[in-house]
Amino acid sequence: MREQIPLLVNGRRSILLLPFFLFVLLFFTSAAMQLKFGSPAMTWEELLSIIFSHRGDDLRRTIVWEMRIPRILLGFMVGTMLGAAGTIMQGAMNNKLAGPELLGISSGASLAMAAITVLHLPVTVLFHPAIAFIGGLAGGLSVLIASRGSRGTVALLLIGMSVSAILNGLLIILISLGTSNDVNLLYTYLLGSLANRNWNYVIRMLPWFVMVLPFAFFFTRTLNLMQLGDEAAAGLGVQVHRARMWMLALCTGLVAITVAQCGPIGYIALIAPHLVRSLLSSLDARLVLPLSALCGGVLLTAADTIARLLLYPMEIPVGVWTTIFGGGLFLLFFVKRQGGGTRA
């Protein structure tokens, strides 16, 4: 079965170049559109002058530097973490349908964050990622406990969907207990949004991004071996259960941090690894993981550009667009590969 996983050799490093440059081009195109278009209108010359020379009127400088640039940076970091989390989760479960939306992680983190708002808990924003992590971990552990004794990752995913549905039901009950002001605050947040994010959000996200994301790349060899199946991986020296728990904990941390800052943004974690594997025609985690992280950041930046500009001046939260487009792409991937079942 080892030949099913084409591993990286020196001659194949070039296959990274085309997807890498494609993602970089898409990112800068999306970022340029984010920076230029909107109100007030500005020419390309004015925009370049504001960015590189800090020249221009105060209003345009403030909008570019205090609103649009932080939003782009935050969206890229959030998408990068989601792309990495999706790759690790699918590898840990050895199932390409695995995602934080289906294993109770996103729902648990969202429920914890909603509780802070509705119950008016005295929790400073610096500790919101920790609260979201606890909620996401509780959701993920609920799935693991409920699935104890079941065989196969498909059963685990079905249980995860059930637990997510229960947590979403509890979330609706919790929201109904809040005031109208609480509901208004939670509405946009629970749809997943990057609107009105400034440098404070970027500064709060940056330490987590720098400290947590690098741990993902320690698991590339383990992910490659676990694609051979649990028994084969164990025979090659992998402590499968322990490795899976560590990887799921890491995924919970990556997702919970993004939920704390932007709300639950769906399908980026699920779609980015599928897209990268299709572009590379490879399952090698040493290739797929870094490009999936980059792809996630680019996808979210592009989706946020659509969210802000498509129906301007009205803005629909980016989480709605990622669900629409991500769900459509996932359906396309699934139909294309339905002959391989859920392990496609």
Rank of each mutant, 00 (worst) to 15 (best):
residue 63 I to C: 07
residue 256 A to Y: 04
residue 270 L to W: 05
residue 318 V to S: 11
residue 134 I to G: 13
residue 184 N to S: 13
residue 24 V to A: 15
residue 146 A to S: 13
residue 220 T to E: 09
residue 276 V to L: 09
residue 295 C to G: 07
residue 236 L to C: 07
residue 141 L to R: 01
residue 11 G to M: 06
residue 129 P to C: 13
residue 177 L to R: 15
residue 341 G to S: 10
residue 16 L to M: 14
residue 81 M to G: 02
residue 240 V to E: 12
residue 25 L to M: 14
residue 248 L to I: 15
residue 85 A to E: 07
residue 187 Y to S: 14
residue 269 A to Q: 01
residue 324 I to M: 04
residue 237 G to A: 09
residue 93 M to Q: 11
residue 22 L to Y: 09
residue 301 T to F: 02
residue 237 G to E: 01
residue 134 I to R: 13
residue 176 S to N: 14
residue 94 N to V: 07
residue 276 V to A: 10
residue 31 A to K: 00
residue 76 F to A: 15
residue 37 F to Q: 01
residue 6 P to C: 10
residue 278 S to L: 00
residue 246 W to D: 02
residue 176 S to Y: 10
residue 162 S to N: 07
residue 98 A to T: 03
residue 286 R to M: 06
residue 265 I to G: 10
residue 50 I to W: 06
residue 20 F to S: 15
residue 107 S to W: 07
residue 39 S to I: 06
residue 34 Q to K: 08
residue 129 P to W: 12
residue 316 I to G: 03
residue 316 I to L: 12
residue 268 I to V: 15
residue 220 T to I: 08
residue 279 L to S: 14
residue 119 L to F: 15
residue 339 G to Y: 12
residue 61 R to S: 11
residue 101 E to D: 15
residue 132 A to N: 08
residue 341 G to F: 09
residue 76 F to D: 14
residue 326 G to Y: 09
residue 152 G to C: 04
residue 60 R to Q: 14
residue 284 D to V: 03
residue 104 G to R: 14
residue 81 M to E: 04
